[in-house]
């Protein structure tokens, strides 16, 4: 993984992350659920990783679907 290639979208709970994954899949944005990187949050949950290039379109898709986003961080 090259530095800065990805963004992680933090959601409030796993169920929210799974909903986010579904929305992104329907929108055609490749994503993967990964553990929340420890340097970003101490939450033990999962987050959704997308390509940095897809960050804004992913954010818009999630907001349009009513999925609350806790934060988006480049990794």
């Amino acid at each position: 993984m090259s530095d800065g290639a990805y963004a992680v979208i933090l959601l409030y709970a796993t169920s929210h992350a799974i909903r986010a994954e579904k929305v992104l899949k329907q929108t055609g944005i490749p994503s993967k659920m990964i553990p929340v990187p420890r340097h970003i949050s101490s939450s033990c949950g999962v987050c959704v990783r997308v390509a940095r290039a897809d960050q804004e379109v992913a954010r818009q898709a999630l907001e349009q679907a009513g999925v609350e986003i806790e934060g988006i961080h480049g990794i």
Partner: peptide, 12 residues
Amino acid sequence: GRAAHRLAVESG
């Protein structure tokens, strides 16, 4: 909803 490995995610 705990770990993020494939089976945990599938369970979620």
